[in-house]
């Protein structure tokens, strides 16, 4: 965006699910509203709107964040992946985490599911073979009011089994490389 802009509108230029998007929006537009209202991608949900429930989780440059607590302007120049963008190919298939939710009956009403899927994708990138405790810690920023979490944890375990070693190399997260992150103490 234009750093000299002094009005309350900003032009946000970013990539969402591989597509270039440019919109001029009020600076106060949150990323979740940008994605839902400007781009029509309503798979990302607004739940609590207070950074607690995780229903709005998307990936920004390959890292899961809560899009209700990020300005669209802050995502300028970034690559965003929403739930609509996780399935392989032309979108007919399912991401291994989505498939695992299907197999393990990891959802009931489904409201938290997009955020849960994004959170578990992050968990499995960081910890490909998590313990049950690590899974519960990983999804501690996501609330589900239906399932009691049992089948969500089972889905994460199942996804870990099917996707170990196949989903780690193509991520944009620069800190996920095997070498030290930029700027680290040397």
């Amino acid at each position: 965006m234009d750093p000299a802009a002094n009005g309350t509108d900003v032009t946000v230029d970013l990539k969402v699910n591989g597509r270039h998007e440019t919109r001029t929006v009020p600076a106060r537009t949150l990323l979740v509203h940008f994605v839902r209202d400007r781009l029509g991608l309503t798979g990302t949900h607004v739940g609590c709107d207070t950074t607690q429930c995780g229903a709005c989780t998307v990936e920004v440059d390959g890292v899961a964040v809560k899009s209700c607590t990020m300005l669209a302007a802050q995502a300028g120049g970034c690559e965003i992946t929403t739930i609509e963008g996780v399935a392989p190919g032309d979108g007919d298939g399912l991401d291994p985490v989505q498939q695992a939710f299907w197999d393990e009956h990891g959802l009931q009403c489904g409201f938290c599911t997009p955020g849960m899927v994004m959170a578990i994708r992050q968990l499995l990138r960081d910890t490909p073979v998590p313990t049950n405790d690590e899974i519960r810690h990983g999804i501690s920023g996501n609330l589900c009011r239906c399932t009691g979490y049992q089948n969500i944890v089972a889905a994460a375990r199942s996804a870990a089994r099917t996707s170990t070693g196949t989903r780690r190399s193509s991520r944009a997260d620069p800190s996920a490389t095997s070498t030290a992150p930029a700027g680290e103490v040397s």
Partner: peptide
């Protein structure tokens, strides 16, 4: 390397908020 020099920091970071918040 930072965590190795600063005992207690790793454990504190782990329990700050949740993974999405820690990313930002």
């Amino acid at each position: 390397r930072t965590l190795a020099l600063l005992p207690g920091l790793a454990g504190a970071l782990e329990v700050i908020a949740d993974q999405q918040v820690r990313a930002r």
